[in-house]
């Protein structure tokens, strides 16, 4: 099945995020983010660095740094409590069990003084998936074999620094998938990897979530990677979701000028007469100090006075856009 084929009926939500905001002191870094993920659904979250993608992931995991405060609702299937109001103890029983996460840099996410097999076994034992040291060790070895690590018996006895970047990332994936999570979050899981290793890793993530029917939230700044892996895409900029839609529709008929800009900049074969690539003007403002109103208006070719107010969401939650002049609406004519 192709990655871009849309599912007709979204299954009941595994994760439902509603009105999520993350604030630091005086301003919002993530604002009013809402989306849901069904079982087995693979959803991509894309945007440049500083757009709030990782903070959204950390808020779901309950791993936000202390100086940031989150508001809104995050609900996980079959969990009574809202994750944002749950205690740290309640959240920690979910992490590694029903919520799995793969970080960009596996070297810092793994304990450098612990053998990787023991780290995988620990995740299994903490959540009581298996009892007894030997059973956990056996299961850990199976998990390492499942992420196609050669000679898992030997790899299990290694320390993280003795493995290559790609091998470490596989260990991270084995840990994240160990207890068959309802939701797997991958935050730029392949950005630090070589392309051939990335290809293998993407395949493993794809197979891993398919085998467990887990929902996948895949965060990346690389549109092509997300398009390859995900059924649906959420485009984030300035802490807000500016466009959402099924992969194929979103990429063939992008509506938000930011999505169009990202796509144009990603395509190295589309150049103008002088051989130059299309770009998005300017850069992401520092410290999350985006303009009020439409967050993209200071870089947008269609920006005008109307954009001083936040355009609001048009369309469905999983298929819509937040723009005063979306492409294909007729309103963008004569602009840009």
């Amino acid at each position: 099945m192709g990655a871009v084929s849309a599912r007709p009926d979204p299954p009941p939500a595994v994760l439902d995020v509603a009105g999520l905001s993350v604030r630091t002191g005086d301003h919002a870094l993530v604002e009013d983010v809402s989306f849901h993920l069904g079982a087995g659904e693979r959803v991509g979250l894309i945007g440049e660095s500083g757009s709030g993608k990782s903070l959204t992931a950390l808020a779901i995991m309950g791993l936000l740094p202390d100086e940031l405060s989150a508001s809104g609702h995050i609900r996980l299937r079959e969990v009574e409590r809202d994750l944002l109001s749950a205690s740290e103890t309640e959240r920690s029983t979910l992490r590694g069990d029903r919520l799995g996460m793969v970080f960009q840099e596996p070297m810092t996410a793994l304990n450098p003084l612990m053998r990787v097999g023991a780290q995988v076994a620990e995740v299994l034992r903490i959540h009581g998936a298996v009892s007894g040291r030997e059973a956990a060790t056996d299961r850990a070895r199976d998990l390492l074999a499942a992420v196609e690590l050669p000679d898992p018996e030997r790899i299990a006895r290694r320390y993280p620094h003795q493995l290559s970047g790609g091998q470490r990332q596989r260990v991270m994936l084995a840990m994240a998938l160990a207890n068959g999570p309802d939701l797997l979050i991958c935050d730029e899981p392949t950005t630090a990897l070589d392309v051939t290793v990335q290809a293998q890793m993407l395949k493993l993530i794809d197979d891993g979530v398919a085998a467990r029917d887990s929902a996948l939230l895949f965060i990346s700044h690389d549109l092509a990677v997300v398009a390859t892996v995900c059924d649906r895409i959420l485009v984030m900029y300035g802490g807000r979701i500016v466009e959402a839609g099924p992969t194929r529709a979103l990429l063939t008929r992008p509506r938000h000028p930011y999505t169009e800009g990202l796509m144009a900049a990603s395509d190295l074969e589309a150049v103008d007469a002088a051989g130059r690539l299309p770009t998005i003007a300017g850069s992401v403002p520092p410290d999350g100090r985006f303009p009020d109103g439409c967050v993209f208006r200071n870089r947008c070719p269609r920006g005008d006075d109307a954009c001083q107010a936040w355009p609001g969401w048009t369309g469905e939650q999983h298929d819509g856009v937040a723009c005063w002049y979306p492409s294909g609406s007729g309103r963008e004519a004569g602009r840009g």
């Binding site: 103008d272 770009t279 003007a281 300017g282 200071n298 870089r299 947008c300 070719p301």
Partner: peptide, 12 residues
Amino acid sequence: MSSFGPAPPPGT
């Protein structure tokens, strides 16, 4: 350049 040619609006 493609549709992203124009300079950003003034005052930004």
